[in-house]
Amino acid sequence: MSDLILHHYPMSPFSEKVRLILGHKQLAWKSVLIPSVMPKPDVVALTGGYRRTPFLQIGADIYCDTALICDVLEHRQPEPRLYPEHNKGMARVLAQWADSTLFWAAMAYTLSPKGAAAMFANQPPEVGQAFAADRAAMRAGMTSLRAGDATAAYKSYLRRLANMLHEQPFLLGSAPCVADFAAYHPLWFTRVINPSLAGILDATPDVLAWMDRMAAFGHGHLAKLSSTEAIAIAAAAEPAPLHDEAFQDEHGIPLGSRVTVAAESFGQEPTEGILRAASRTHYTLERSDERAGRLHVHFPRIGFVLREVRA
């Protein structure tokens, strides 16, 4: 069975979501550290354009977006479950809210002018400037919350999470599910990466206690790998055979067409390739890279846009 290779960087909140899931499932994985800002030539060699963090590599298969990565890890190691048997829909919907609405409120608060100044206070000015410029480019076209609005929303969301945790250890019951990991990582960014602003969490002690329970899962069993080694692994492998899943055509674009897939918002750099699968949940593109060889790059349907490339 091919190794799980996570391409990430330490302060990435979505990476922390996946790292904790790897810990919860006690999986072994290879860690490839990537830059937090562009350029990312080794990332693009594998993804073809997609530049959000993290992404998961298994041989010559590249899985983009943490929602899809969660499904891949669940298939790899079904227990303990991310999707409770009788509450799968609720878990997924709550996770989607946490990865979007909660996340952006938390980021707008934690990276407000005051927060950004505190976070980059001990680094050269150009580091903070490069980070701000990179993220501004990724947010092109998005409406960003102002700091005051974000603070008010964040406080409300924390109270709602606290209400869910008042008489149970995790958001949907006695065991963690995908929603817990999705809700945890934006709060982790505030508490761990920019602790000068973590006082906002003090009003919700049930949330803090839950965060301690989540952090205790750790990151599993990791070994370091370089991006050059990861690309060589891809080049030496072939993409795994695709599952015999029904083709769900919502666009009038047949399999075998040249297409692009890009995020709906935030980091909309497209990946171009040949459409090899379009199931009810995900897309698979085949592409080639001079260093990484033939690859299959996988995206979830939700949150991504499929377009045909016309001559």
Rank of each mutant, 00 (worst) to 15 (best):
L6V: 12
H8T: 15
Y9L: 02
F14C: 02
S15C: 03
S15T: 00
K17G: 07
L20F: 08
H24L: 05
H24A: 04
L27K: 15
A28S: 13
S36Y: 07
P41G: 06
A45R: 05
L46C: 03
L56T: 08
Q57G: 15
Q57W: 08
A60F: 10
D65S: 03
E74N: 10
H75G: 04
Q77H: 05
P78G: 12
E79C: 12
E85T: 07
H86D: 13
G89R: 10
M90T: 15
M90C: 14
A91S: 15
V93L: 05
L94R: 05
W97E: 07
W97Q: 10
T101D: 07
T101G: 12
L102K: 05
F103Q: 01
F103G: 03
W104H: 06
W104F: 10
A105W: 04
A106M: 06
M107R: 02
A108C: 05
A108G: 13
A108P: 05
G115F: 11
G115P: 10
G115Q: 06
M119C: 10
P124L: 14
P125E: 13
E126R: 06
G128Y: 03
G128T: 04
Q129S: 12
D134H: 14
A136G: 14
M138I: 12
M142S: 12
L145N: 07
A147M: 08
K155F: 10
L158W: 01
L158P: 00
R160C: 09
L161N: 11
A162W: 02
L165T: 00
H166Y: 06
E167K: 07
P169L: 15
P176E: 00
V178P: 00
D180F: 02
H185W: 03
F189C: 01
N194G: 06
S196C: 10
A198H: 13
A198W: 04
G199I: 06
G199Q: 14
G199M: 08
L201I: 06
T204L: 09
T204N: 11
D206I: 00
F217Q: 09
G218W: 04
G220Y: 02
G220S: 04
H221R: 15
L225G: 02
L225A: 10
S227C: 04
S227L: 05
T228M: 08
I231D: 02
I233E: 00
A235M: 09
A235H: 02
P239S: 05
E245C: 04
A246M: 14
Q248I: 06
Q248R: 11
G256V: 08
G256W: 00
R258Q: 08
A262R: 15
E264I: 06
E264M: 10
S265G: 08
E269P: 03
E269R: 11
T271G: 11
T271F: 07
G273Q: 01
L275H: 03
L275S: 05
R276S: 07
T281A: 14
T281L: 09
T284G: 05
T284E: 10
L285T: 07
L285E: 11
S288L: 06
E290W: 14
A292V: 11
L295R: 04
H298I: 12
H298P: 03
F299A: 00
P300C: 05
L306N: 01
V309Y: 03
